[in-house]
Design a binder for these strands. Structure first.
Lengths: 156, 156
DNA sequence: AATTTTTATTTCAAGCATAAAATATTTAAG
DNA sequence: CTTAAATATTTTATGCTTGAAATAAAAATT
């Protein structure tokens, strides 16, 4: 007869599954909070924020395909989001010199200004939501997540 | 003059932000793989899988509102997904005795059978995607994620 | 130079997701 | 008992998201 099973006795694949389910729940919860925050304070959405964040980081603008690869979303998806951002005067679309297929996208001056405000508040919100995690927790967490990032490149 | 900054010198809020961004990227990557798997092998979607998983776990079925609370999605969202699952003969909707507002939802026999196949393959896929993580990694990861789960209850 | 292949993007149809409003029913208060 | 408040769900409008098909231009092949 076996002793009462502890967590460590669980098979590795079951433990991985449980970890994934927990991780998924956490990200969904945080995403929901972010959506709420963006809607209430900036009348915008998470996908729009993600696009603007990517554009803000790249000084020279991004091509549509680069954007979709960066954000892990489909090509057609980016088209729609950019369309609405252009309408709102936050983003500019210009032709790429020497390649008439491609489009280069970047934030307008207004877009940069707006994003800077959002980013500040966003950081504060994340900080608050993850207040539970101290430096020691992060020391443990970040390297593991970093190693997981590697699987993205390997398996795709 | 300061020494070259290491990761640990980064302010706590910046570290939390970076951790969140990594975690988000990982979950999005895994979700994309799951979607691909569900589409190619079972001609279904992640939201449908999530709903079926929740129903499979609860032997007595769930009310629409319980389902939406459990999955962290909106009420109307569940309505649509359940509608399609009912159409496909995977889910059954019955009235709740003594409350004519509420609906109880559960898997059909066929739905249970189909889900069992999916769940087996799903577990194998997750195990594969997170093959990088051994018991020691999980020992570090799971407790932290569990503590994060607590914020869901506190802050909502 | 003409043809094929690859690359970049958009369009399309279907499903997912949300918030807000509407509907219907139950519970609580007066 | 009647009205008011709370609960359970659906409907609606809008936007997100996908995969696949369409369009167009560039690059590679023949």
């Amino acid at each position: 007869m076996t002793l009462p099973s502890s967590k460590s006795d669980m098979s590795l694949n079951k433990r991985r599954l449980r970890m994934w389910i927990r991780m998924l729940r956490t990200t969904r919860f945080v995403e929901a909070r972010l959506r709420e925050f963006l809607r209430d304070n900036y009348d915008t959405t998470l996908p729009r924020f993600d696009v603007m964040a990517a554009l803000y980081r790249s000084s020279d603008g991004l091509k549509m395909s680069e954007l979709s690869k960066l954000l892990l979303v489909s090509n057609g998806n980016v088209t729609g989001i950019i369309e609405r951002l252009v309408t709102d005067g936050l983003v500019l679309r210009v032709n790429v010199e020497g390649d008439r297929r491609a489009m280069l996208v970047c934030l307008t001056a207004h877009g940069r200004k707006v994003f800077e405000g959002m980013a500040r508040d966003h950081e504060a919100l994340i900080n608050d939501l993850f207040a539970e995690l101290d430096d020691e927790d992060l020391d443990g967490l970040v390297p593991v997540l970093s190693r997981l990032k590697a699987i993205e490149d390997k398996k795709s």
